[in-house]
Computed example of a mutant assay.
Amino acid sequence: MTRKYNHYCPVAFSLEVIGGKWSFTIIRDLLTKPLRFSDLLQYSSNVTPKGLTLTLRQLEEAGIVEREEQPGHREVWYRLTQAGEDLRPVVEAMKEWGLRHAMRPPLQGEVVRPDLAMGVITDSLNKRGRKLPQPATWLMCFTHGGTYVLSFDGAQWSTRKGEEADPDVRVTVSPEAWATFLAVKRIERDQYVQSMQLVGTPERVEEFWQTFVVREVPKHT
Rank of each mutant, 00 (worst) to 15 (best):
L132P: 05
Y192W: 13
A102W: 12
V169S: 11
A102N: 08
E75I: 07
Q194N: 13
P89T: 06
S151H: 11
F181I: 09
D115A: 12
E75Y: 05
G63W: 06
M118D: 10
T180N: 01
R57N: 15
L99T: 03
G109R: 04
Q194T: 14
W97M: 03
T122I: 03
R128S: 12
V90A: 14
G154Q: 00
T180A: 11
Q156S: 13
Y148S: 13
M140E: 13
K95S: 11
G145I: 07
D166R: 14
V112T: 05
T180C: 05
C141K: 12
L150W: 09
L54G: 02
R74N: 06
E68M: 13
D86I: 02
M140N: 11
A165M: 12
E110H: 09
R79S: 15
R104W: 11
V65S: 06
E176C: 04
Y148A: 14
A183E: 08
C141E: 14
A62I: 08
I64Q: 01
E110W: 10
L139A: 09
G98L: 06
K185I: 04
L107V: 12
W157L: 02
E92C: 01
L107P: 00
E75A: 15
T81R: 07
E164I: 05
R130G: 00
Q134R: 15
Y192S: 00
E110R: 07
P89D: 10
I121Y: 02
D168G: 14
A136S: 13
G162T: 08
H73P: 03
D86A: 12
D123M: 07
E96R: 06
L139H: 06
K95M: 09
G109M: 00
E92Y: 01
A177R: 02
A102L: 15
Q108S: 11
D190E: 09
R104P: 06
M94Q: 00
T147I: 11
Q70D: 15
P167N: 14
G154R: 01
L99E: 05
L116G: 06
E164P: 00
L87M: 15
